[in-house]
Nucleic acid binder design. Structure first.
Lengths: 209, 209
DNA sequence: TGCAAGTCTGCACCGAGTATACACAGGGGT
DNA sequence: ACCCCTGTGTATACTCGGTGCAGACTTGCA
């Protein structure tokens, strides 16, 4: 029974992947607003109705991946080594992600990644819906901070700051790559900016502002 | 001619106000998703098409007010007294707004204000579109920080943090009022939280996290 | 083989938003 | 007085995202 259920699940998963891939390919090719859901369904060889059974909205065809990563920051905090401050763990994780050219850092210069990133930032409805996942990421991170012993108010404020700062850093990196800079060229400055950002979080803006 | 133009402008403005007020009243009464644009147009006695000439989207019927306030923070920084650090000016402005029970602080307990605030946070499409104005507010504030002499990277990071922190504070206040607390009861704690938030921005999370 | 549950589909429908073509008013120049 | 021009509102019909419904098909299971 387990195997049979497994087969079904796998088939559903394959259908799901096919739909999402077809959609993203079309969106990258013609632009999100210039492709109708009907066209996606036709190309993916499912009915419109079925497509909506897998993805509740058109935007989710693109953004479903982010649903999985929304609590990544919280996970990092929870998995940190004994005795390490949460902010240090997050800083370290960001530096690692930069070194690995993690797409979420905006520092991956493969054409598809750049295009995908650009698709989201340049499509208003996608950017808007993305913030929903961002908000959940903030909530999750605030929970993790609280578990780590932070005051509830501090936890929320700091979580919001961390998440927003990481987004800004990613956007800045992406902007440079769009400008033609290679990820390797940008890397040192990206590392510096990330360090500066976490210094600000730890030490504050102080007299500077 | 000036008078006639003036009259015309005023008439347009009144029409605009009528539409927006009618819409908000209906939304507060039945919920955003349970009122169609057609119904709003009928009640406001204009055609659907005319309504869309005044407000590009249904969401803007509610959010148009925020478009004006999106650069409020930037304005505060630019208008600060000679020699005052930008963060101090923002802190001071927030404390003043709290004392005045400015609706944007989430600390206004008039039933309409609470309902209006709740309408936005509980309606996904409204919350999503609101972030568009928030993003523009961040950009504007970053500009102001740069004019005040901040490094461009610092300006962006700090602007994002300030705007998000003020939003979080407002949400927390609103949540307490929804719970039944009066604005006056909540006020001391709101002041404390605001102070703590700006302390964090100035001094950082430090060893705490 | 036949039953039951889950999945897929077609169809009709709703609501948001747009294109087009038109009505109507007032103002300005001849 | 005439016409035109511009700005504002209107009716109609359309596209597209998303949902409800009822039937058909697959798949697992007895």
């Amino acid at each position: 029974m387990n195997q049979q259920m497994g087969l079904r699940e796998r088939k559903k998963e394959r259908t799901r992947e096919t739909i999402a891939e077809t959609a993203i390919r079309l969106f990258l090719d013609k632009g999100f607003d210039r492709v109708s859901v009907t066209e996606v369904a036709e190309r993916a060889e499912v009915s419109r109705r079925t497509l909506f059974a897998y993805f509740p909205t058109k935007e989710d065809l693109v953004l479903h991946r982010f649903a999985d990563h929304e609590s990544e920051a919280a996970r990092i905090v929870r998995a940190r080594p004994e005795g390490q401050p949460p902010l240090d763990a997050l800083r370290q994780a960001l530096l690692t992600a930069l070194a690995e050219r993690d797409p979420n850092t905006g520092l991956n210069d493969s054409p598809e990644t750049i295009a995908f990133f650009g698709l989201i930032t340049s499509t208003e409805s996608l950017a808007a819906r993305l913030t929903r996942y961002v908000a959940r990421g903030i909530d999750a991170l605030a929970d993790a901070f609280r578990e780590a012993g932070a005051d509830p108010l501090d936890a929320r404020l700091l979580a919001a700051q961390v998440i927003m700062v990481e987004r800004e850093l990613a956007e800045i990196n992406h902007a440079h790559l769009v400008d033609g800079q290679s990820a390797d060229d940008r890397y040192p400055e990206a590392v510096r900016a990330a360090g500066r950002a976490y210094d600000l979080l730890r030490d504050g803006a102080g007299s500077l502002a």
